[in-house]
Design a protein around this nucleic acid. Structure first.
Lengths: 226, 226
DNA sequence: GGAATAGTGTCTCTTAGACAATATGGA
DNA sequence: TCCATATTGTCTAAGAGACACTATTCC
């Protein structure tokens, strides 16, 4: 009674970034069975000797693939069932994470088993396990969160312009937003400080912002509306 | 490399109801070590032979304690670490659930190892494991959700009045709300249908409502504000 | 000066809060 | 009729959308 056959318990990461105004997710080619050579989410087994918690495990797995820590990491949910893994009843805790594309680029370029893929082209790839479903739920959660918080900022480098943040948000929620609304939110959130100037492509230079060191994620009381 | 020592994986349920205008959580007395005879959340090990998923396991555990299925059940999050269980690294998936007090009363009255305790008196009880923390996070999540949805309705029996729903919401968010605001939301959500009349305590009878059979939980674009 | 990008002013619209006014049934 | 509880009317307030207007840089 005390101990059943313990189910397989794993961690999976849905690591997002935005590049070329597109939402992308990091996928890795599986090196072992099952689903060998198919694209899958970076993850694996918890190692109680290495990991202080499931979050620590998720960070470790991401570090191995990208060389850096993600800017944002949060539990998505647990997926379980008899059908999702041919080896039997399996349980995976999925995380979703955000980071700037630049930070990981050099590391990812050196390997050929990891790649950023646009989330809207994933239906063309057969993904391992139920990873297609997991990604879909992660996208939905991120989309929702982008409506009442500024989490999308974690898809950008440490310093960024309002236009860059606007592009990221629009890529995530898949519709245009008003620059004015965004600027109101940046101000109201009190999460950022303005730094020096910057000439982006030419024209008028844009103000650079960065996260305040102690900034908490501010939750707005209203969603961005249609 | 394929298989580490698999961590202990368990399920815990934070089952809420509202009675006497107070938010209460179902706790059970532990029958075995560790933490024997202390109050704890109803839960236990997944049994892959009985449970089709972690949700099914959560329902089964709740059924055993209350005799009925909860009206609402959702994953809260995973808690993990080396400190939370004296037996070593442990992982638990916590759910939170809602139900009307009546539905479980007869079943709970027949046992003496399960009891509804007001969440605001829990600091007086030493709870097992990190269950104090888990409950605190569940309360925070429920509170947040009550601001932009009508989930608190699942703390009520199938038929209920606006005043009853108002009482439940106020117990959860710990401040009064405007009846007018609630009525607007009931209408806008399109989740309920009015049934026949009812004389509550005397005075003017209140309209009874019940969930539409196919009702999805409606998410409002604004929170109830201060 | 013209073009392009950055940022502001301000009006409208929606929905929550406040609270007065009305409705209904019992004593 | 009076009282208590239920329900509606309606005004105000806050913040998002729309969009015109101003600002800054490069050519």
């Amino acid at each position: 009674m005390e101990q059943y056959q313990n189910p397989l318990f794993t961690i999976d990461n849905v690591l997002f970034t935005v590049a070329q105004a597109e939402l992308k997710v990091l996928l890795v080619k599986r090196a072992i069975e099952p689903f060998i050579d198919q694209w899958s989410l970076p993850g694996g087994f918890v190692d109680p000797l290495l990991d202080a918690s499931v979050e620590a495990c998720a960070r470790r797995k991401l570090q191995e693939k990208t060389g850096v820590a993600p800017s944002y990491l949060e539990q998505l949910k647990v997926f379980s069932g008899h059908q999702r893994d041919p080896r039997g009843f399996a349980v995976t805790l999925a995380f979703y994470a955000l980071m700037g594309e630049q930070a990981a680029q050099s590391h990812i370029d050196t390997v050929h088993d990891a790649q950023w893929l646009p989330v809207h082209q994933l239906q063309d790839y057969p993904l391992a396990f139920d990873h297609q479903t997991i990604i879909a739920e992660a996208v939905a959660r991120l989309k929702q969160k982008a409506l009442y918080s500024l989490v999308p900022v974690y898809c950008l480098p440490a310093q960024f312009t309002v236009t860059e943040l606007m592009t990221v948000i629009e890529a995530i929620i898949e519709r245009p937003i008003q620059r004015k609304s965004l600027m109101r939110r940046i101000e109201a959130s009190d999460m950022f400080i303005a730094v020096d100037e910057k000439v982006s492509t030419g024209k008028r230079p844009a103000q650079l912002y960065q996260l305040k060191p102690d900034a908490d994620i501010y939750l707005f009381e209203r969603n961005l509306a249609e």
